[in-house]
Simulated assay, not measured.
Amino acid sequence: MIPYSVKRLLSGVALLAVLSVITFFALRLGTQGVAQQIAGQSAGPEAVALIEGRLGLDRPLAEQFLAWATAALTGDLGRSWFTGQLVTEAVLSRLAVTVSLTVGSVALTGVFGVLLGALAATRRGWPDRLVQILSVLGQAVPGFVIAVGLVLLFAVRLDWFPATGYTDPSESVGGWLRSLALPVTALALGSVGGVAQQVRGSMLDVLRRDHVRTLRSRGLPRNRVVYRYVLRNAAGPALSVLGLQFVIILGAAVVVEQVFSVPGLGPVALTSTSQGDVPLVMGIVIVTGAIVVLVNLVVDLLQAFLNPKVRLS
């Protein structure tokens, strides 16, 4: 297990390195006039040149990247070009909000996805039809449409939850849960159908295998066979889909946070990208990329635990 874990970890680090190179050069090639934006449109060439020299924008791109990468390896992600705030501080101050949204949505997706998938595979009927409908809607309906619909129904019409805003858990746990309810639900609704569909397909495949029929012929209770043997054998593909949904939900949180005015990484990412604030965008990319790598590593380790053959891949 240790060699397998090290191999997966090294591949994740390599992925982060490639991601940082591509992101940096794409940003810098697309933000040629950033010094003019910082200085102001009325600033003269001398003021612009002064800012370029202070930020190191007058050096070759390769040299700029090496300077950023060297500092980043020591934990220094620099400062925002527009606000002067430390990138680490700007990202970490909002990371908890985005992570709480994402983790809550993935947990909700996992619970209801597995439950509906298991019901669809074993009972068929209406659970099966519901899974099909949710799967189609999750792929066809954009996340912001679901978010707006939830606001109109549960916030405006029924007044059960706040339409916008965020309450810190240190202020009120109940308020925090209420402020997360609609964003988490909006993110989960788009993903639960895909997970349920995968669980359903995997369980149907396992239910047709000879060893399952043998267990049932020996008189073992149906629920024991389904939840102890079938579901465990079908958990591998479901974990893979759930790991993929984590990445999708993390990306979708950018839009949903805008709709619900949640102070997560989404608004900062959109603003810094439109401004060409390279240090801040790079900090967001590296931190979120590291989270994705960590989640994929956990999924791979769980896959190896459930299926020892995976360790040989």
Rank of each mutant, 00 (worst) to 15 (best):
K7H: 13
S11D: 01
L19T: 15
I22Q: 02
L27Y: 06
R28A: 08
Q36R: 14
A39C: 05
G40Y: 01
Q41L: 13
S42D: 14
A43H: 02
L50V: 04
E52G: 13
G56S: 09
A62Q: 12
F65R: 10
T70E: 12
L73M: 14
R79C: 03
W81R: 07
W81I: 04
W81D: 06
L86R: 13
T88P: 00
V91A: 02
T98G: 04
V99I: 15
L101V: 08
L116D: 01
G117Y: 06
G117M: 09
L130A: 14
L130N: 05
V131S: 06
V131K: 01
I133K: 00
L134V: 12
V136N: 10
V136M: 13
G138L: 02
P142K: 13
I146K: 01
V151E: 01
A155F: 12
L158I: 13
T164Y: 11
D168F: 01
S170W: 07
S170A: 15
S172F: 07
V173W: 13
L180R: 06
A181E: 08
T185S: 14
A186W: 02
A188T: 11
G190Y: 03
S191P: 03
V192Q: 05
V192S: 06
V192A: 05
G194E: 04
V195N: 03
A196N: 05
Q197V: 01
Q197M: 14
Q198M: 15
Q198I: 09
V199S: 01
S202H: 02
M203A: 09
D210E: 15
R216H: 06
L220H: 12
N223G: 08
N223T: 12
V226Q: 07
Y227D: 11
A238G: 07
L239K: 09
L244G: 15
Q245H: 11
Q245P: 01
V247Q: 12
S261K: 04
G264I: 06
A269Y: 11
T273R: 06
G276R: 02
I284L: 15
V287K: 04
T288P: 00
V292N: 06
V293P: 03
L294E: 00
V298Q: 00
V298I: 14
V299M: 07
L302Q: 04
Q303C: 13
F305V: 10
P308N: 11
K309N: 08
R311W: 03
L312D: 04
